[in-house]
Design a binder for these strands. Sequence first.
DNA 1: TATGAATGAGGATTCATTCAT
DNA 2: AATGAATGAATCCTCATTCAT
Lengths: 203, 203, 203, 203
Amino acid sequence: MARLSIEQLRRQELAAAAYEILQEEGIAGTTLAKVAERAGMSKGIVLHYFKGKDALLEAVMRHANALLRDEVIALMAKARTPRERIAAIVAGNFSPKFFKPEICNAWLSLCAEVPRNPTFARIQRVIHARMRSNLLSGLAELLPPERREAAVIGITAMIDGLWLRFGLNQEGLGQEEAMAQMEAVMSLHLGARGAGRIKRHSA
Amino acid sequence: MARLSIEQLRRQELAAAAYEILQEEGIAGTTLAKVAERAGMSKGIVLHYFKGKDALLEAVMRHANALLRDEVIALMAKARTPRERIAAIVAGNFSPKFFKPEICNAWLSLCAEVPRNPTFARIQRVIHARMRSNLLSGLAELLPPERREAAVIGITAMIDGLWLRFGLNQEGLGQEEAMAQMEAVMSLHLGARGAGRIKRHSA
Amino acid sequence: MARLSIEQLRRQELAAAAYEILQEEGIAGTTLAKVAERAGMSKGIVLHYFKGKDALLEAVMRHANALLRDEVIALMAKARTPRERIAAIVAGNFSPKFFKPEICNAWLSLCAEVPRNPTFARIQRVIHARMRSNLLSGLAELLPPERREAAVIGITAMIDGLWLRFGLNQEGLGQEEAMAQMEAVMSLHLGARGAGRIKRHSA
Amino acid sequence: MARLSIEQLRRQELAAAAYEILQEEGIAGTTLAKVAERAGMSKGIVLHYFKGKDALLEAVMRHANALLRDEVIALMAKARTPRERIAAIVAGNFSPKFFKPEICNAWLSLCAEVPRNPTFARIQRVIHARMRSNLLSGLAELLPPERREAAVIGITAMIDGLWLRFGLNQEGLGQEEAMAQMEAVMSLHLGARGAGRIKRHSA
DNA sequence: TATGAATGAGGATTCATTCAT
DNA sequence: AATGAATGAATCCTCATTCAT
C-alpha cells in the first residue's frame, strides 16, 4: 500500500541526488549533468521529470525541508509539555542528522537565491510560517500574547545564525555549544516556565 | 593631496559596481559584462585590474567589509565604557546604512561560497576574528573568562541570524526589532553590567 | 554490418573536419567554431564529443597518422623481401595521397607543439617507435646490428626533412625528387643489398 | 663607430626577448606582454618599435637566422678547400650554440607558419637561397652541374630532418650522431672528393 | 519512459592593438 | 621615447534546454 508511482520515485531520487551535489558544489556547481550522473540516470530524464533546473532545486528545497520536518515531528511526538514542544522544535534543527556544515551551507545557498527566485521565496515563507506556528502554539500557554512574537524571532534568528556560522565551517562551534546557546535564548524568553532541560528523551 | 592613483580609483569603482550588481543579481548573476557596464567601462578593463572574477569578488568582499568596519570604528570612537563598546559593535552591524535586505543578501551570497572559495574563507575568518577580538576586549572587563566565549558566540550568531532573516526580506522584521533582539541577547549575557541602553547618543 | 555508432561517426567527421582546417589555418587558426562549421555541426556538439580543443587535435593527429599507417600497411603487404619492406615504408610516406604541402605543413604544426603538449609528445613517440620498429625488422636481415641504428636515423631524418621542406611549399621539390633522395639514402646505408629499385609494382 | 641608434638597440633587445619566449612557449604562447616583460620594457613600447606581432616575429626570424649566419661565416672563414666550405656550412647548423631542442623547435614553429605568413615565407626563401648558393659555390668545383642540385637538396633536407627530430626532443639523437649522419650524406654525394673529415679546426 | 544527440546562448578570459599623456 | 590605460574582438568552454528516436 502507498506504493510510489515510478514518477514519484524518480523525482525523489533526483531530488536526493541534487541535494547531495548541492552540498558538495553549491548552487552554481549543481549542474543537471552532475545530478543525472549521481542519480545514475541520463541527462535527458532530469528534464522529463522536472520542468527545468529551478524546478529541480525547488524539489531539493522541499526535500531538505521534509527531512527536517519529519525530524521535528518525531521529536514533538515525545513532547508532553508546551516547553518540551518548543524544545523539540529547536532540537530538531540541531539533530546530528542535519546540523552538518555541508547541509547548513546548502541551505544557505538556497536562501541566498530567495530574492531572485519567487518559488524559493514562497517555500521559504511556508517553512518559516510553519516553524512560527509551531513555536507559537507552544508559547501560547507560556507567554502573554505581546511577548510571543519577540520570542519567536529570537529563537528562529538564533537558529539561523548558528546554522550560518556552522555552514562557514570554521572552528569553534559544535552541536553542544549550539544547543547551549539555544537553551540560553529559550530561557531568556521563557524564563523558568515549563521544564528545565531540552531533549530529555528519557527522563 | 592623497590623490588616489588611477589604478586604485578604478579598482574601487569596479568593486563598488560589482557590489551593486551582486546585491541585485547574486553571485552567479554578477557577470563581468554587467559589472563593466555598471562601472561605465569596457569588459576588458575589468580583467586589466583584477586577475579574474574571483579576485573581483574578493575585492567586493573587502569593500563591503571595509564599509562596515568603518561604521563600527566610528561608533566605537564615541563609546566610553566597555558595555558601550560592545553596543557600538552591535549597532554598527545594524546601522541603516548596512542593514538593508539587498546588502544582507549579498553578504549571504558570499558566505554561501566560503566552503568552495579559500580566499572567501580566509577573508571571512579575518572578519570574524576581528569582531570576536573587538567583543572580547569589551567583555574582558565585564565577564569572567569562562563566560566570555559563550557571550561572543551568542552575540555574533544572533547578528548573523538577523542578517540572514533580513536578507530573506520577509515581512515582520525591521531594524527596531533587530536591535531589541540584540539588546535582549546582550542583557542575557551581561545582565545589568555596564550601561543600560544601547546607542544613547544623547543622554 | 559493423555500423559505426553515431558517436564514432561524429568523432570521425569532426576529426576529419579539424584536419582540413588545420591544413588551411594552422593550429592557432583551428578554432572550434571553424571546425564545427566545416563539419556542418553546431559549435556545442564539438565539445559534446571531445573534451576540449586538445582532445580534438589529438584525434586529428591519430586520424592523420592512421591514414599514413594504412597506406604503409597496404604497401608492405605487397613487399616480398626485406629491402622491399623498407622501400614500402618509405614509399608510404611519399604516396601522393599524403605527400602534399598542406598535409606536410599540418604535420609540422602538430610537431611544433610537441614540447608543450604531453599528449602530442606521446603520440609522436608512438608513431616514431612504430616506424623505427618497422624499419628495424626489415634491416635485421640486411645489416649487422651495429649499423642498423644509423640507418634508421638516416632514413627517418631524411623523410622528415623532405616533409618539412615540402611543407614550406617552395618550388624545387616534388615527389619524384623526394623519392630519388630517399633511394640515395637507402643505398647509402644498404648498398646493393636486397633489390635494386623501389616500388616495382610490376616487374 | 657603428654605434647603434637607440631604436636599433631596442629592436634587437625585443627580438632577443621574443626569441627566448618563443623557445619556451611556442608561437601562440609568445604574447606581447610576455615579450615586454622579458625585455624589461612596457607593453606599449613593443608596438612602438614593431608594427604588430607579426613584425616582431619577423624580426625574431631574422635575428635567429643572423646568429646562425654569423656562425656559418665564422666557420667558412677558416675553410681552405671547397669541401671544407661545405663542411663549414653544415657544421654551422650543428654548432652546439644552435643545435638545441628549444631552438630547433622554435625554428619549427616559425616554419609551420610559413604558408600563412607571406613575410615568413619570403624570409625563409631568402635563407634557403643563401644556403643553396653557399653550397653550390662549394659544389661547383666538386661536382658536375647535373649532380649539384641533388646534392644541395640531400644536404639541406637532412639538416632539416635532424633539426626537426631534435626539436621533438626525443631520446636517441645527439649532436655527435647528427654530424655522423651529415658526413654520411656528404660522402654519399661527394664521395671522397675534397678533404676527408669535417671540422678539422686544427689540423 | 528513457536516452543522448544537438543546439545556442552566455560567460570568463586572453590578447593584439590603439591612444592619451 | 615611453607608459600603461582602455578597448573589443575572438576563443574556449559550460550548461540548460530541446528534440528525435
